[in-house]
Design a protein around this nucleic acid. Sequence first.
DNA 1: TTGTAGGCGTTATCAT
DNA 2: ATGATAACGCCTACAA
Lengths: 329, 329
Amino acid sequence: MVSIKDVARHAGVAISTVSKVLNSYPNVSDETRGRVTRAVAELNFVPNSVAAALSSKQSARVALLVNLNTKTQAIDEISLQYIQGAINKAMELNLDVITLFFSMFQDKTVEELIRYLKSQSIGGIIIYGISMDDAVLRELAGGNDFKCVVVDAPLTSENTSCVRIDHAKAQYEVAKRTIVDNNCHRVLYISGRENSYVAREQQEGMARLAREMDLEMLLKYGELSELKARNITMEYGECYDTVICGSDLMAIGAMKALTEMDIFRPVCGYDGIILMGYVGKQMNTVRQNFAGISATAMEELHRLMNGKKGEDVRTPYTLERMKYTDIIC
Amino acid sequence: MVSIKDVARHAGVAISTVSKVLNSYPNVSDETRGRVTRAVAELNFVPNSVAAALSSKQSARVALLVNLNTKTQAIDEISLQYIQGAINKAMELNLDVITLFFSMFQDKTVEELIRYLKSQSIGGIIIYGISMDDAVLRELAGGNDFKCVVVDAPLTSENTSCVRIDHAKAQYEVAKRTIVDNNCHRVLYISGRENSYVAREQQEGMARLAREMDLEMLLKYGELSELKARNITMEYGECYDTVICGSDLMAIGAMKALTEMDIFRPVCGYDGIILMGYVGKQMNTVRQNFAGISATAMEELHRLMNGKKGEDVRTPYTLERMKYTDIIC
DNA sequence: TTGTAGGCGTTATCAT
DNA sequence: ATGATAACGCCTACAA
């Protein structure tokens, strides 16, 4: 393997000079920079990131903490897009990435988790799908051991940023469109989990809508489960004009229930997952660009690791009407 | 951070002794081993894997090369299960993992790719979804730079193993069941890609079946695309008794086409993906345990990195009849 | 502006 | 059986 030493020799300069060029330090003459750059090219030198991580204080290594839904595997579509978006952006930014799943440390304490991450020379982390119940992860995000970006949870601080769409606004808009278009007044709202940050924000949007439009609204928790949403719809669907759901998966469950009950009620989803196209019906939904959100999270983390303060970042979304033909290819 | 040095001091031994204990070398007295182990526990010491990777010759770092299907995102369900299975097993085996996607190096040469992997101190790789067209990756798998496990491609060699189910047998069995149960004679077989290793093996199975049962069979390539399978079925479906597909996704396309044509033909899928449950119909399929296959691949890679020779590993599968109610929860 | 040298936390090769 | 000590490849004061 060609190392920095070889480059230095080939360019006729000191190792430290090569290092300075590689890390674009200011005090290097153009001529020296040129010689080093040329040597790098000629030798096809690629810096060893492991050595760099060991040597440098601010290691450019990032951990992705992903909450893989082992039960309803269908929505794992989202997790994969998160992972993909993050890893691609990380490669652009020259950051190393390791991927971890919540299940790996569900029985660990914060201290153990921190020790593990430090043993991997991790400098920053991105957490996906954290809920209010995850004490350990919340502590991790709140602490000062790592730079941190949390997707979809409002845990902003000195070195923790949050990235997400405006769920209150998105839920408000997609529900309003569905309700206005169909002239509804009595709304069955199937939200996700009670202790989900996203669900809380979505509920805010729905509450505002209910106020503004003077709606009668029943709030139920579908736990992001297709089956639960189906059962809720079975029980209450008939008495309401429309079923608004906090996730596409639940919307699918609601729709199947309505079909079985043989009654029509407009259903509204949330997320814009591909899977929804396969049920063969249409519905309004909020399309989130999960890969894009994750890329944004990685950029934000990169900034944090370069000294920026944490903040609350909102990403764009679109309202869509998804149908089968949009999907297949 | 507590380092090996702290452990050594605390245990009253030399650093190298601690290292020997950690890596379970033979020549250490039980008493010393005990003192070191105790010190490790008391100090909550977790070895720094980055330093180990730098120092050690045979670095325990593994790269996952995943062929993410950017077009038909639906079947990415499989990729995620691969990733999950590999990462979980790697953690058990104390291997570090980085995940890469084919798209990241599609315009790179083998040499560039090798340099990149070496710059990351990668010692072994697992390749998912390689096809006969991927010259660079085939060269990588054939070379001697890394220990390598290839999932679903017969590229066995000195330090390259292959892990997969017996596709010829599986395709034979699932098709036979479908054909016998429905008493068919004329078969429309929609295979995947022409240059896919899996497709070739599946075709072997079908050829044998056609021979044994004296079937008339038309082979078409659906390119793993739901739409292509749909179009093929539209064109030829009517003249055949049954449609056998090389993937669930294509089976879904075929089924939708038949529904639209308003004719019944038994359809048979392959893979056992969750998505299939959502189309709301039943069909025979081969269920692969993708996470399990990937875990097996990681174990095999681990063995290779410990000096074993490459070989061809077959994993189990089951024939199943998937239906909606199996899925939702 | 450039070079020297110490250190990052391990592993591995020698002596002892 | 145990302990010095030199790598591993890079970063970074600090010196020149």
